[in-house]
Design a binder for these strands. Structure first.
Length: 739
DNA sequence: GAGCACTGC
């Protein structure tokens, strides 16, 4: 890099809005333990503040750590700052994300993902190597950032811990867009708030007429969005369009419609001397091939207007330059955990007002823009919440609770959450951890739990991996665990002919592994691809996502390394297996999935044994779909609620294998666990409880009892709401089609 | 008889 180029980037940073506040900012950090910094995008806070603190000498006795919710952000910001500080990336300025550690002994300014810092805390709860920790993008309320906030707050509630092993107290800076800053400040002991003006252009927002308060489940918005895009194209000045929809199929349908309609337009509109001739239509969603995604960022040919039709991926993860017009459907697809039925349900819901503003803001990055909302003002007022429900309140907390417990936080209910999750979410997590033997009856982490927390996996999957390792058959389970923790690897194309072809090939792959076990199919795919000479070509031929499989390979390697490290410790469990060797794989799976057992009830319907007694069916993508014979007991990886309640990734088991485990699902008294969580039980009370528990187990709850109890129940009522909404949407879609 | 948004360790 030339000297002048260096000088330019340094000089440029002086024009950022944050520059004139440099001195005051440094003072503010010096003067208080916690500081909230707010500023809209473009203020320069993410790149400049760490540099100011570095200049002010904060790195002399510790490092500066900055967290980001996303990998790409951590990497690109670190690159930019290394450039501005005129050093090689990985020396003074570095970054650390999963699978990619670009730091060294010299690193003093470290960008990382929030998940990485959480892992570091597990090894060093006092964060002794840091002098300043900066949490960035806190307004996004990612699960890990929320946990970090609570942990840092708690660290200072016992000053001894906070100053342990350090000569100078830790400073914490929390950076957020200008939302809810009062709440953040109050949470952190009424700490000072520092506001930096942003540098964005005004965006004019307009409401539409298509979606009103009664249309919260409507999908008529696809047609409306298309109409709006064409309106913009024919009547607005030059500038690209970004459309927000909820998913792949919707996007493809919208693009098809746009193609049809756009062809009918007589190009040559003169809009204030700007000739708009054509429209370039580009879909954008996460599972799209990366090279296809790249096209989105190329500027359109002269005289052509670009119209990107995207999922929420374009709201935060990707920034497209040149966007001047936003068309907002007002909906998003969101995964919500339902603790009442113990399932995750993916559903289409209205976005929050803050999310709508975020979407609109995407039009004002380079010049003034316009945002067309297809919903009415009334919909905005009545149907859209102020803020998006934070992830911590709509996700399964099993892994998080185990992490907290391993950090010595036993009272997970009264942990300082910025927004507390519902108590039943926490109770459900405690119950599951108890069932996996990760915690004991008093809520203390067991030896097994200490091992489990090391794995970046769902605890059940970890449990199965550890069981396999103790029986020396980890080679079967590690690939499966990896395959289940990456995105879906099977491609199912939209065209009916190709769909048939893909299905046929996938069935053949299942047959190669015995044809009766979806977990085994995953193992087979993993092995076949890995041993192939040209793995990417193999994937293309077999309708497998190469990108997904590649990440499964790296996950498997990482899991293997973690396991090896743990096995070198002394107390790693070793067991012997005296059953049928051919059943070893499935029995290991049962150890992790006995919470996901279902028994055939009537015909195709199975009944879950998890205490909810949900009625489920095997998903048609499973190799067990339509297999009638000898299939009375199954375990499954997950549940999908659409037209029916489906279980996916299924494996037949023998009742004998789970017979002794099933009662464990029902002997836990969650309310007792909750008192344990609160640490309100004295030893005396505990004794009483243990006796009572012992009495309860006498006569022991048998698996048969559990079955009888569950046979009587029917969950139709509990999942019917989600299902009814789905059917309603489907009906509406068909009506729209007919029109 | 099939409807998976987006992150992260």
């Amino acid at each position: 890099m030339s000297k002048s180029a260096r000088w330019d980037s340094k000089d440029e940073s002086k024009h950022l809005p944050i520059y004139q506040h440099k001195h005051n900012l440094i003072q503010a950090v010096k003067n208080s333990t916690f500081l909230v910094v707010t500023g809209e995008t473009g203020s320069g806070k993410t790149t400049q503040l760490p540099q100011y603190l570095h200049e002010a000498g904060f790195c002399k006795k510790g490092n500066i750590g900055i967290t980001q919710p996303r990998r790409v952000a951590a990497i690109t910001v670190a690159q930019r700052v290394a450039q501005e500080m005129q050093c090689t990336l990985g020396r003074e300025v570095g970054y650390q994300v999963r699978f990619d550690d670009c730091t060294s002994q010299d690193t003093v300014v470290k960008y990382m993902t929030d998940g990485c810092l959480l892992r570091e805390i597990l090894a060093d709860p006092g964060l002794s190597q840091y002098s300043v920790v900066i949490l960035d993008e806190v307004h996004e309320r990612s699960l890990n950032t929320d946990i970090l906030l609570g942990l840092l707050k708690k660290l200072f509630s016992s000053p001894a811990k906070a100053s342990k092993g350090r000569s100078r107290p830790l400073k914490v800076v929390v950076m957020s867009a200008t939302l809810e800053t009062d709440k953040l400040s109050a949470f952190l002991g009424n700490c000072p708030v520092f506001t930096i003006p942003g540098r964005t252009f005004p965006v004019t927002c307009m409401f539409g007429t298509a979606v009103g308060p009664k249309d919260t489940e409507s999908t008529g918005y696809v047609k409306e969005v298309v109409k709006m895009a064409l309106d913009v194209h024919s009547s607005e000045m030059a500038g690209d369009i970004l459309v927000f929809l909820t998913g792949q199929s919707e996007i493809e349908r919208a693009c098809d419609l746009l193609f049809e309609k756009a062809e009918a337009i007589d190009y040559r509109y003169d809009v204030q001397d700007q000739t708009v001739e054509g429209l370039l239509i580009l879909p954008l969603y996460g599972s799209m091939p990366t090279d296809q995604q790249r096209q989105i960022f190329q500027p359109p040919p002269p005289g052509i207007r670009k119209c990107v039709v995207a999922t929420n991926i374009a709201a935060t993860s990707l920034t497209i330059n040149g966007i001047k017009y936003i068309i907002d459907s007002g909906f998003v697809k969101q995964l919500n955990h339902n603790s009442r039925v113990g399932m995750d349900i993916l559903e289409v819901v209205p976005i929050s007002k803050s999310e709508a503003q975020q979407r609109a803001g995407r039009a004002g990055r380079t010049s003034a823009g316009k945002c067309f909302r297809i919903y009415t003002k009334e919909f905005w007022e009545k149907c859209m919440p102020e803020y998006t429900v934070p992830e911590i309140q709509r996700t399964s907390l099993t892994a998080v609770v185990l992490t907290l417990k391993c950090l010595g936080i036993h009272d997970v209910i009264r942990f300082p959450y910025l927004d507390s999750p519902e108590e039943r979410f926490i109770l459900e997590a405690l119950k599951q951890l108890f069932q996996f033997d990760a915690i004991d009856r008093r809520g203390r982490v067991t030896q097994l739990g200490e091992l489990m927390v090391e794995f970046p996996l769902h605890p059940g999957l970890t449990r199965a991996v550890l069981k396999a390792a103790s029986l020396s058959c980890q080679d079967m389970l590690l690939p499966v665990a990896a395959m289940l923790s990456v995105e879906n690897i099977f491609i199912r194309p939209g065209h009916p002919d190709k769909q048939k072809e893909a299905d046929k090939i996938h069935r053949a792959l299942a047959a190669k592994s015995g044809g009766m076990n979806d977990f085994a199919t995953l193992l087979t795919v993993f092995q076949l691809c890995k041993s192939s000479d040209r793995p990417s070509e193999w994937c293309r031929q077999n309708w497998i996502h190469w990108r997904a499989l590649k990440s499964a390979f790296s996950v498997e390697t990482q899991l293997r390394e973690i396991l090896l490290r743990l096995q070198q410790k002394r107390d790693f469990p070793v067991e012997t297996f005296d059953g049928n060797k051919g059943e070893l794989f499935r029995q290991c799976l049962c150890t992790g999935y006995f919470t996901n057992v279902a028994r055939r009830s009537v015909g195709k319907v199975f009944c879950t044994m998890d205490g909810h007694g949900s009625m489920v069916q095997i998903h048609p993508s499973s190799s067990l779909f339509d297999q009638e014979a000898e299939l009375n007991w199954v375990i499954f990886h997950d549940v999908l609620v659409t037209s029916r309640v489906y279980i996916r990734t299924v494996c037949p088991i023998r009742y004998d294998w789970v017979k002794d485990l099933l009662p464990k699902l029902h002997e836990v008294d969650v309310y007792e666990l909750s008192s344990v969580a609160r640490e309100e039980v004295t030893d005396e009370e505990m004794m009483k409880w243990e006796t009572r528990e012992a009495a309860k187990r006498q006569p022991e709850v048998s698996a048969e009892d559990v079955m009888k109890k569950l046979e009587k129940r029917n969950n139709e009522a509990t999942v019917s709401d989600a299902r009814a909404r789905y059917l309603q949407r489907k009906q509406q879609r068909q009506q729209n089609k007919a029109l």
